[in-house]
């Protein structure tokens, strides 16, 4: 147990962070290089002003027609994405680990808050799962990989919740929790989770085309 723990909380953390940052950086750079070579158009038309204008509308809840037309989805997707990033960064248990290893720390949320937010994330994942199974237009686009990605995202929250509440097998679950978090980080540059990294560029480019060239809104 100690060996496994030391391994998953030591070298594997490094591996996952290196894959996450290195891989994301690699994806970004290779995209930029390829664009320079084959899609120079993107550089020509990319506009900071109109790109940001579009991005800001899309990252604002109810800031676009699409978001306003689907209020439930909008609420779920925004809370889900915010919590997804917010919880792991501001969870006291995580910060203590940062403090122990690097002697750095920052503001954190109470465990009760984190507990509630984790339920929100898990419930959102269930929402997305049901959506995938039930809505024909989503089901039609769904492949096995979509379920795997959803599972990768949900796993750290389910296992973290389990461990925190010390349900049966929580020690093993704690190890799985660490491992699943690492898998999720490492999966970001390797799967469609890369949308997290690419969003500003795809949206920004469309915003630039619509704003600077076509003088129209894209939201």
């Amino acid at each position: 147990m100690h060996d496994i723990y030391n391994f998953v909380s030591g070298p594997l953390v490094w591996v996952s962070f290196i894959i996450f940052f290195g891989g994301s950086l690699y994806r970004l750079i290779s995209m930029a290089v390829l664009a320079k070579k084959k899609d120079v158009i993107v550089y020509e038309y990319m506009s900071l002003k109109y790109g940001l204008r579009s991005i800001l509308h899309w990252i604002t809840p109810f800031g676009t027609v699409k978001w306003r037309k689907n209020p439930i989805l909008t609420i779920v997707t925004f809370t889900f994405h915010i919590c997804l990033i917010f919880i792991p960064i501001f969870l006291s248990a995580h910060i203590i680990l940062w403090k122990e290893s690097w002697d750095i720390s920052w503001w954190y949320i109470s465990d009760t808050t984190a507990d509630v937010l984790a339920v929100v994330v898990i419930a959102s994942c269930v929402f997305f799962l049901i959506r995938r199974i039930v809505l024909p237009e989503v089901k039609y686009l769904t492949s096995v990989s979509d379920y795997i990605i959803l599972a990768i995202v949900a796993a750290p929250f389910i296992t973290g919740f389990w461990t925190y509440h010390q349900w049966p097998g929580f020690k093993i679950m704690g190890i799985i929790h660490i491992l699943s978090g690492e898998i999720m980080l490492a999966a970001i540059p390797c799967t469609r989770l890369i949308h997290m990294v690419f969003f500003p560029f795809t949206r920004g480019y469309m915003g630039s085309e619509f704003g600077a060239v076509r003088h129209a809104k894209d939201w």
């Binding site: 769904t142 469609r192 690419f198």
Partner: peptide
């Protein structure tokens, strides 16, 4: 490449 890699099959 980016468009295909970014689409999360959400159906929106």
């Amino acid at each position: 490449k980016t468009y295909v890699g970014t689409c999360v099959h959400c159906g929106l």
